[in-house]
Amino acid sequence: MSFFRNAVWFCKGLGEYTQSGYLAAAKHFKPEDLDVNCQGKSYMITGANSGIGKQAALEIAKRGGTIHMVCRNPTAAEEAKTQLMTESKNDDIHVHILDMSEPRDILRFAAEFTQRFSSLNVLVNNAGCMVNTREITEDGLEKNFATNTVGTHMITEALIPALSKAEDPRVIIVSSGGMLTKKLDLSDLQSEKMKPFDGTMVYAQNKRQQIVMAHKYAEKHPKIHFSTMHPGWADTPAVRSSMPEFYEKMKNRLRTVEQGGDTIVWLAVAGDASKEKSGSFFQDRKVTSEHLPLAWTQSKPEEEEQLMGILNDYYQRFSS
């Protein structure tokens, strides 16, 4: 089944996730969707100093939005901020230094942000991690799981009060089409049994977890619009460093960062985006299936509840 899923997924990717796939989809885009004035609205983007996160920040800043860049590296963040301000001619850009693998720091940051700023219109959970060796954080969490799953849950739940005060609040989770190869598996969340450790497979499982998380958030917080999305295969620093072999094979077919970030921007600013069902998975501005045909990757309701129970336990643990 794993071989079948991977083969079907790769064929799908060659047709849809590459630059040619984007160009085909873009023929059906409505340009007026992005003809939006974002002044007076605030947008928080994690991992905003490079790649598609930076590109999304630039496009929203060009439209007048207030940008909150959440980044791990202070130097890279300040350099990106300067570039964004210059290119967008928007000075309302703020840098917040935060490691998304550190739950207590995330909760502390969210509390301070909520006290300082009255509301938040859009949260873009873009920061991701694909570490190809098994690393354990100081809190005893496997690094990929800590960043992609626990970190996303921590910041989303902690910022619900700020989002709830805004008009048309939205939360966007940058997932990955790679999750189509994975069924939710709660038996080894810390990848202790995986021999040998495979960061790509762990990442794909984390991204499947994010799909489930978005469903449950949508149920729990009906006044906030939640979405997950796949940016396609884009030429980003993360792809070059984390997947060098894939990059070398596919570099002539990869999407640009502008193309990869397009649906993030659309989900963040377009009026039509929040009219779609909350919790949906998007690709190239359209709701798309979260499962490959005949791949049997659907999870049981009790499994989804169990995942959220585990994440909520982490939230309570790190809140104390």
Score class of each variant (00 low, 15 high):
residue 17 Y to C: 14
residue 22 Y to L: 08
residue 28 H to D: 15
residue 29 F to A: 07
residue 29 F to M: 07
residue 38 C to Y: 09
residue 41 K to L: 13
residue 45 I to Q: 02
residue 47 G to V: 00
residue 53 G to W: 11
residue 55 Q to G: 06
residue 71 C to I: 12
residue 80 A to D: 08
residue 82 T to M: 15
residue 86 T to A: 15
residue 87 E to P: 03
residue 91 D to V: 15
residue 94 H to F: 11
residue 102 E to L: 05
residue 107 L to G: 11
residue 108 R to T: 14
residue 108 R to G: 08
residue 111 A to P: 02
residue 112 E to I: 04
residue 123 L to M: 02
residue 128 G to L: 06
residue 134 R to E: 08
residue 135 E to Q: 15
residue 135 E to N: 14
residue 135 E to M: 08
residue 140 G to I: 05
residue 143 K to D: 13
residue 151 G to R: 06
residue 152 T to D: 13
residue 153 H to W: 13
residue 154 M to S: 10
residue 155 I to E: 05
residue 164 S to W: 00
residue 175 S to F: 04
residue 175 S to N: 08
residue 179 M to I: 04
residue 181 T to L: 10
residue 182 K to Q: 14
residue 184 L to H: 02
residue 189 L to M: 15
residue 189 L to G: 01
residue 200 T to E: 13
residue 201 M to G: 11
residue 201 M to Q: 15
residue 206 N to K: 05
residue 209 Q to R: 12
residue 210 Q to F: 00
residue 218 A to Y: 01
residue 219 E to S: 07
residue 221 H to F: 09
residue 224 I to Q: 03
residue 227 S to M: 12
residue 232 G to E: 01
residue 233 W to R: 06
residue 241 S to L: 14
residue 245 E to S: 08
residue 248 E to K: 14
residue 251 K to I: 09
residue 251 K to Y: 09
residue 253 R to M: 14
residue 255 R to H: 01
residue 265 V to D: 02
residue 265 V to C: 00
residue 273 A to D: 00
residue 273 A to V: 07
residue 275 K to S: 11
residue 282 F to R: 07
residue 288 T to H: 11
residue 291 H to N: 11
residue 292 L to A: 05
residue 296 W to Q: 12
residue 296 W to P: 02
residue 300 K to Q: 14
residue 303 E to F: 03
residue 306 Q to K: 14
residue 310 I to E: 06
residue 310 I to N: 02
residue 311 L to W: 04
residue 311 L to D: 01
residue 312 N to A: 15
residue 314 Y to K: 13
residue 315 Y to S: 12
